[in-house]
Design a protein around this nucleic acid. Structure first.
Length: 846
RNA sequence: GCGGGCGUGAUGGAAUGGUAGACAUACCAGACUUAAAAUCUGUUGGGCCUUGUGCCCGUGUGGGUUCGAGUCCCACCGCCCGCACCA
């Protein structure tokens, strides 16, 4: 008898799948299509366990769908533009293009041994001119459709990466990649009009039933819809051009309690005053300097500067309010100006207390409550409160009712109007980098900004660039920059900004449907394959990538590149957890921690016997050295073991801890299954209890199918373990055992396809297990003749009876009451009630 | 502060309102072996005695609904995630 030799088995079957083109996706009318996609990787050069887990989950879905009669599309590509390539070029020399394509080759070589059911014929990288040329074509169509525009704007400037960042890419005031404190600069930039689609992007979230609620909620908060009143205060003694100050409020019901007006230090009026008054200039500078970290905001004092300007209250005669410049007012939300109602806003309350401004309530907790407040009273909008200064007279009302009444009142008196605002800003896409998709426009002295002609696409990146000076090398490449105007033919200069790499990943899923089309997509293929039926990736893309992709699908539909049915491109989304590992640490000579790789530690000790401190599991990272290289695992145990383990120990949406013992256990288990299969292959003759084995088999088919369909991979694997144990102990005959092992192999095949394929072949089965149909549950087989029922007395389990499955409720009651343990527990008491749940439980109540 | 999620053995985790702890790890014991590894078998939530098909306790804490609650409801405690001077 031979042994389980995964490396030999796996290479052999991968070759067969490859030779037979088993995973090639071809349009076909006779089967339902299924498009499964994992978020494509950035080609860093090494795959990690997170990739293994992500792609294994997608592969389980893809292989299961293949077995259940679907025409499956399961592609893979590379999100290949981006800063690391340029950083590497600057750090170690070389060229971003060579670095990137070298990494892609390395990573593909590491990925293929996983045995994923990918149609590699559709592979592309976003840095292929064939891809980004089509992206430039899309850009031109978007430009023509008014979906992208150019404007002068204050932008987030990352001084380390020397480029602009979108709002979404700034975290706590720092660049999401470099971590540098972001500066503000005024530049002319390209923007996608995503904000025009705020309402649609928000509303459509309701229909994404197969997305995690968490992701939908995060997007909802990000879009940030609010309803309120926008109106103007008339000023007294203000500079020319500022006769009005426009404010926005979501609580117009507090207008009668206004005691000051505040403007942002970046408000146009503040900037004008700044130029005349060094004092104001100093104050504004101080405000802008303020830290943007969580702690700084939490503890920051509310600071204000009285401008001396006054405004009149629009509804209360002879009432004037002071205008302050205040540090807590943001220019990029609402109008950059507010009215303060200290009684009903904690910030305003602190501000008013500090500067001695009146605190006037417009509503109170109850009609008899005192009018003095020790802190702001801020009930929810649905709470009933007593309005003492409401717009509908003094009365009990909810905030929501009062807000509506206030908007109506103000509108009918010509004071502003009800408006809806969104937090979502337009998406700035210009980046001052080399390694990205060039924006296909030309700057002409006579014609201005002129789109390139489509026949000139792709506008390819020049290869001969240098990175010895900071900044964008395209700016210095005169031969590339100098061109002729597509409109008038005179000399002109190319745009040197490239696109944000999030553009590249916002439509790759559509390109996979026709990767060689001479237009960005082709309608026949896009209509057939879209939408992505199952998308799988990390929660870290909950907002940026998924929101941008949803916008792009709409923009592509408007410009005729996607069918209307594909405006929401991802039908179902699954966000998987990370792979974590313990951290091993010792203390170095200088007192600093020294980290050790898992492979250098055994039994908590290094090779020289030094004990290490074990720090609880965390995401695998190079800096903490708690990484396990999938390549090493595959060469030691095989891909099937790695695949089995990453699925087995935790629910897929949660983190899974990689442990050496767990990986070994997975390997042992697969070896046991293989050995058992070999033994069964040599069996002959009849045995006992065939029906019992086959019943367990059908229960397993049912449970594993349910597990795979509901992303309960860990539970499915537990059922497979249990059935393996049953088969192992079974005394059934050769025929039944053979049927059981082949079914087990099929049920395992989405997770451990190579092992399954080998068992299939060794039992002389025709064709490939990969192409064979999924087993069907025989419901009749699930029914047993007898059933074991627990008997509870007052909800506590006291006994167990085994009765014929079809026994009547009355007879079950009688049998239960006749049980010795039940009689003993009742101790002569008369049951008040007996509850019989057929097939489940009996509860005797006394 | 706002929004969301989660608290189950030594550990990862199972449980359509119906026998809590499936399955796996770890530990312990046994078989095989000169020995170890590998392999196989078995035990393992806590406590109690009268060792039984025994009793009591047990899913963060306290209450509630129910014949029956890890699961549903309320309050609290703890941890995690997202957003945030958003008017």
């Amino acid at each position: 008898m031979s042994r389980y030799t995964p490396t030999e088995i796996e290479a052999r079957w991968q070759e067969v799948w490859n030779r037979d083109e088993v995973f090639k996706a071809v349009r076909s009318a006779d089967k339902p299509k299924y498009y499964v996609l994992e978020m494509f990787p950035y080609p860093s050069g090494r795959i990690h366990m997170g990739h293994v887990r992500n792609y294994t989950m997608g592969d389980v879905v893809a292989r299961y769908k293949l077995a259940t009669g679907h025409n499956v599309l399961h592609p893979m590509g590379w999100d290949a533009f981006g800063m690391p390539a340029e950083n590497a070029a600057m750090a170690i020399g070389g060229h971003p293009k060579d670095w990137t394509y070298g990494n892609i080759k390395d990573m593909r070589d590491q990925m293929k041994p996983l045995g994923l059911s990918i149609d590699w014929s559709r592979e592309f990288a976003t840095c292929d001119p064939e891809y980004y040329g089509q992206q430039q074509s899309l850009f031109l169509d978007f430009l023509e459709a008014g979906l992208v525009y150019r404007k002068n704007a204050v932008v987030n400037w990352d001084p380390v990466d020397m480029t602009v960042l979108a709002n979404e890419q700034v975290e706590n005031g720092r660049g999401w990649r470099s971590g540098a404190v972001v500066e503000r600069r005024e530049l002319t930039q390209w923007f996608f009009k995503i904000s025009d689609h705020s309402e649609e992007l928000l509303e459509a979230l309701d229909n994404l039933e197969n997305w995690p609620a968490k992701v939908r909620l995060m997007q909802e908060n990000w879009i940030g819809k609010s309803r309120g009143l926008q109106f103007s205060f008339s000023t007294i003694d203000a500079p020319e051009g500022h006769e009005q100050i426009e404010v926005y409020t979501t609580r117009p019901d507090t207008l009668m309690g206004a005691s000051f007006v505040g403007i942002s230090p970046d408000h146009p009026l503040a900037k004008l005053l700044e130029s005349d008054s060094p004092e104001i200039a100093a104050f504004c500078a101080e405000c802008r300097k303020g830290g943007t970290t969580e702690e700084a905001i939490e503890t920051a004092e509310k600071l204000g500067f009285d401008t001396g300007i006054r405004v009149t209250h629009p509804l209360i005669d002879d009432t004037e309010l002071p205008v302050y410049i205040a540090n807590f007012i943001l220019m990029d939300y609402g109008t950059g100006a507010i009215f303060g109602c200290p009684a009903h806003d904690q910030r305003d309350f602190e501000f008013a207390t500090k500067y001695g401004l009146p605190i006037i309530s417009t509503f109170l907790p109850a009609s008899d409550a005192p009018e003095t407040l020790s802190e702001a009273f801020v009930p929810t909008k649905s709470e009933q409160v007593f309005y003492n200064r409401g717009f509908a007279g003094a009365q009990q009302q909810t905030g929501a009712e009062a807000i509506d009444a206030a908007v109506d009142h103000c509108e009918s008196n010509g004071i502003g109007q009800g408006v809806t605002k969104y937090r979502l800003r337009d998406w700035g896409l210009s980046r001052q980098r080399y390694w990205g998709c060039p924006i296909p426009v030309v700057h002409c002295d006579s014609c201005g900004v002129v789109p390139e002609k489509k026949e000139n696409l792709p506008i390819e990146l020049p290869y001969d660039v240098s990175f010895d000076v900071p900044g964008n090398p395209l700016n210095r490449h005169t031969a590339w920059r100098e061109t002729t105007c597509p409109a008038c033919g005179k000399p002109a200069l190319r745009e040197t900004d490239t696109m944000d790499t999030f553009v590249d990943s916002s439509w790759y899923f559509a390109r996979f449907t026709a990767p060689e089309a001479e237009t960005p997509t082709n309608m026949a293929d896009a209509s057939y394959w879209m939408n992505v039926d199952q998308y799988i990736g990390g929660i870290e893309h909950a907002i940026l990538h998924l929101l941008y992709s949803r916008f792009f699908a709409r923009a592509m539909q408007i410009t005729g590149h996607l069918p209307e049915s594909a405006v929401e491109p991802f039908d179902a989304l699954f966000t998987q957890g990370m792979v974590t590992h313990e951290i091993y640490q010792t203390t170095g000579d200088n007192g600093r921690p020294v980290y050790h790789l898992p492979e250098d530690v055994s039994d908590g000790k290094l090779a020289d016997g030094t004990a290490v401190d074990i720090i609880p599991s965390a995401k695998m990272s190079k800096s903490k050295k708690n990484v396990v290289d999938p390549v090493n695992i595959i060469s030691a145990f095989g891909a099937d073991t790695a695949r089995w383990f990453v699925l087995s120990d935790s629910p897929p949406e949660r983190d899974v801890e990689w442990t050496a013992s767990g990986a070994e256990a997975a390997y042992k288990h697969l070896g046991r299954v293989w050995t058992m299969s070999e033994k069964i292959a040599e069996m002959s003759g009849t045995g006992q209890n065939d029906a019992e084995l086959l019943r367990a088999m059908h229960v397993t088919i049912r449970d594993v199918t349910l597990g795979v369909e509901s992303f309960g991979f860990n539970a499915a694997i537990a059922k497979l373990y249990a059935f393996t144990a049953v088969l192992h102990k079974s005394k059934a005959g050769a025929e039944a055992q053979k049927q059981a092992i082949l079914t087990l192999a099929k049920l395992m095949s989405p997770m451990t396809p190579h092992l399954a394929e080998d068992i299939w072949a060794r039992h002389g089965q025709e064709g490939l297990i990969t192409s064979s149909p999924w087993p069907v549950v025989d419901e009749a087989m699930l029914v047993s003749d007898t059933v074991t029922l627990p008997i509870q007395v007052n909800g506590k389990r006291r006994a167990e009876i085994t009765v014929p499955a079809e026994m009547s409720k009355e007879d079950v009651e009688k049998t239960a009451l006749a049980d010795a343990a039940v009689i003993r527990t009742l101790d002569g008491a008369i049951p008040k009630k007996i509850i019989v749940v057929p097939g489940r439980i009996v509860n005797v109540v006394i």
